[in-house]
């Protein structure tokens, strides 16, 4: 009886492992194809898409596409980097302050209305507000500028950041607040000196989300930066690849440039990514 169970367990195990292998291939093969074919000549790509012919690899595709008419790598990376870091910084600052008050005062009617208002923003499709946003940005002369996109992002990520951080602050005992209050501190000081230092994990969590989302975002910078002088990586690949589905040697090279940074970041910071992202979602 024990052997039977053992064999059945082994069989199940083998079966499950095979399923996992196939699933893993499904997830990794498209990436593999992109990376590998970026280094092959067009002929090689067409004749044997899956192969990695070490003797015929070329850097030509990459070199040719570093600065094409539609997509200059430096501008793309630069713009995306600035957007991602500055957005994250500003969101963290404004949202943390906001969420502190919201969390501590959640019984008050006024703040409950604000809570509902934030909820509204989480369900909105960004397309719905794009043209009014353009009008608003143009009134303050920020259309087609990086600052304009930043403002939109800060507003856009506010609900997510506030909810996540407010949830976390809820687990910090209010007695700390009271103790500081008795010592004569005002709310501003309580937040910056007592609460904020304790918010490390959730800040890291939110930061990771916002960096990844901003780096990968397409529609908002596409509409606001438009055909201006600056463009993000996502805009760049859309313009560069556009309608070409068959210029493989260029398409894959451009895609490799686009996903390269994420691959590198992922390889080095796997654990942080995965724990940060899931911790945040569950608490929220």
């Amino acid at each position: 009886m024990k052997t039977a169970v053992l064999i059945r367990d082994r069989a199940t195990s083998f079966f499950l492992n095979s399923v996992m292998m196939v699933a893993t291939l499904l997830f990794l093969v498209p990436i593999y194809i992109t990376i590998v074919n970026a280094f092959k000549t067009k002929v090689d790509i067409l004749t044997s898409p899956m192969d990695l012919p070490f003797d015929r690899l070329t850097l030509n595709n990459l070199a040719r596409n570093i600065d094409s008419e539609q997509f200059n790598l430096l501008i793309g990376y630069g713009t995306s980097l600035v957007l991602a870091t500055v957005t994250t910084l500003l969101v963290l600052i404004t949202a943390s302050m906001f969420s502190y008050v919201l969390s501590r005062r959640r019984q008050q009617i006024g703040y409950q209305y604000i809570y509902l208002l934030l909820l509204l923003g989480m369900m909105l499709p960004v397309q719905a507000i794009l043209l009014p946003i353009v009008k608003i940005l143009s009134l303050v002369k920020l259309m087609s500028t990086v600052w304009g996109v930043l403002l939109v992002y800060i507003g856009w990520y506010m609900p997510f950041a506030v909810f996540t951080m407010a949830g976390y602050i809820g687990t910090i005992s209010p007695q700390l607040d009271e103790a500081a209050l008795i010592d004569g501190a005002n709310e501003w000081q309580i937040f910056f000196k007592v609460i904020l230092p304790l918010m490390g994990p959730v800040i890291a969590s939110v930061a990771i989300y916002i960096i990844v989302w901003t780096w990968n975002d397409f529609v908002t910078p596409f509409i606001i930066l438009g055909s201006g002088d600056f463009y993000t990586v996502t805009m760049g690949i859309y313009r560069a690849i556009g309608q070409y589905t068959q210029r493989w040697e260029d398409v894959f090279a451009i895609l490799l440039f686009a996903i390269g940074p994420m691959i590198v970041m992922f390889l080095f910071m796997q654990r942080h990514f995965m724990s940060g992202l899931t911790a945040g979602a569950l608490k929220g």
Partner: peptide
């Protein structure tokens, strides 16, 4: 850019709204 649209209409509308 013709890669984005079939005419310049969208581009123009956006920039009219933006005032530039």
């Amino acid at each position: 850019n013709a890669g984005n649209d079939s005419t310049a209409d969208n581009y123009l509308k956006l920039h009219l709204a933006a005032g530039d």
